[in-house]
Nucleic acid binder design. Structure first.
Length: 428
RNA sequence: GUGGGCGUAGCUCAGUCGGUUAGAGCGCCAGGUUGUGGCCCUGGAGGUCGGGGGUUCAAUUCCCCUCGCUCACCCCA
């Protein structure tokens, strides 16, 4: 009882200094890449009104919502970032200059069963572009994903992005026979076929044809949808899609653009990618390790109607979420996790209490004037011990102040890497 | 939710076919004299062997229950 209370709840993590240094290393790359692409960072509360997340397309994400009621208010921990950002965009829609490039690095919560690469609390890097209807936005985002993968040291062939388009499927189904009479069933159909890899062909068929389900199409139509998921070449879809399909042209254009980014060999068309969230409307994509030994590293797509559905203006948008858990697993598998040792510029040590005021002045000056990270030895300690600790803390210099130095108005500066010792005058 | 694996020192783990004071490595602390680190040497602290119950002369070891961790499946990102 008392012992289990001392453990973090299941699916959550404590971050000790060494863990946090590694996390900062990863987040540092998230932020650096986003800034390199001209994105600005934003943040929002981890707590939102439950209603911001509730949609009706059978998405599993809603069953996994951490929700509670407090003083008659129904609240939830954010399971993903997009709705919060959408809320922020709506609030200032009138004054925002589009296209808008925003990114976040946030903690998100989903109550789900644990497996490798999946936790209940995780961090997610999010990049979104608001107000750009062209696939130039998708291309830029996918390029950012690869920039991150390069930055953290993953070999180029290690990760592949699979791309598809809900719009392509939607056009095909609505202008064809399958959903001609009920285009509103499309989001639910996407949620159903997103389960393809898990429940297989028969499972999807069952979901699609269930007369009491939210899709309810016929056997032949379900067969068409299932066969569609098997497409791995964009050209192969051509015979099914309507003539002059804008979605088809968009995909073609996206692959051309990605070629210009030098990413042609790292992206593939894959019709089985649809994503589990109901709000996607156009291009969707997911990144996987080439061996497919892990879950998706990231996923994203276009959601041109989300803002409207939340009661805001119509602003097209595209974005992705990139979790911290799977990438760290992959880096660990590939032995690409960096050491991230502790770093300190200096340790300042007064040999006796008489020298302490001077030591304090030295530490203060180093912190203030050189902006150094300085550890001041607080208690009485033997020099031997101080040196060993300074070494372990990754300190560059030891500032040693004893009676001899104090008498000369100096401080001894030992370079802990070279062992070289010099003196600096004490200036106050 | 189903099934497997595992819970022994702060960490990683050995071990006990049931039997004296339960071990190692790393880490931690102290020392190898007086103001010089990383190496080495010596010593030390630290464990109700996850918890409860049962079998037994005797349980960390066997059995049952329980809690926790973990992996896979299920399901989702």
């Amino acid at each position: 009882m008392s012992k289990s209370r001392l453990q973090p709840p299941r699916g959550t993590r404590d971050f000790y200094p060494e863990d946090l240094r590694r996390r900062d290393w990863l987040f540092g790359h998230f932020r650096a890449v986003a800034r390199r692409f001209g994105f600005e960072e934003v943040d929002a509360p981890i707590l939102e009104h439950e209603g911001l997340f509730t949609r009706k397309a059978g998405e599993e994400i809603l069953e996994q919502l951490y929700r509670f009621e407090l003083h008659d208010r129904r609240l939830a921990l954010r399971p993903e970032m997009t709705p919060s950002i959408a809320r922020m965009v709506i609030a200032r829609a009138g004054s925002l200059r589009l296209p808008l490039r925003w990114f976040t690095v946030t903690q998100n919560w989903r109550y789900e069963r644990m497996t490798r690469g999946r936790k209940r609390e995780h961090y997610q890097w999010n990049m979104d572009i608001w107000g750009e209807p062209a696939v130039t936005a998708e291309a830029e985002l996918i390029a950012a994903v690869f920039a991150l993968l390069d930055a953290v040291g993953l070999a180029r062939p290690d990760v592949r992005v699979r791309i598809s388009s809900r719009a392509l499927l939607e056009e095909t189904l609505v202008q064809g026979t399958v959903l001609r009479d009920r285009p509103e069933a499309f989001p639910a159909l996407c949620v159903a076929i997103d389960k393809f890899e898990r429940i297989g062909e028969d499972g999807v068929r069952e979901l699609l044809t269930d007369p009491d389900g939210s899709v309810g199409i016929g056997e032949a139509d379900a067969s068409f949808v299932v066969s569609w998921l098997g497409l791995r070449k964009l050209e192969d879809s051509a015979e099914h899609v309507p003539a002059g399909s804008p979605a088809y042209a968009d995909l073609r254009r996206l692959f051309e653009l990605l070629d210009a980014y030098g990413l042609a060999d790292r992206v593939v068309f894959d019709a089985s990618i649809v994503r589990g969230l109901a709000y996607y409307t156009g291009i969707v994509f997911e990144a996987f390790d080439a061996a497919r030994s892990l879950r998706a590293l990231c996923g994203g797509g276009r959601y041109d109607r989300l803002l409207e559905s939340l009661g805001g203006p119509s602003i097209p948008a595209v974005g992705f979420g990139f979790g911290d858990v799977v990438i760290l697993e992959l880096l660990s598998d590939r032995e690409r996790l960096p050491e991230c040792p502790r770093r300190l510029d200096a340790v300042v040590f007064a040999l006796g209490e008489a020298e302490r005021p001077s030591a304090i002045r030295i530490a203060t000056a180093l912190r203030r004037e050189r902006n150094w990270s300085v550890e001041l030895v607080l208690g009485a300690s033997r020099l031997k011990r101080v040196l060993a600790d300074a070494d372990r803390a990754g300190a560059r210099f030891l500032y040693l102040l004893g009676p001899e130095e104090a008498a000369r108005g100096e401080v001894l500066v030992r370079d802990l890497e070279s062992g070289e010792q010099t003196t600096e005058p004490i200036s106050d």
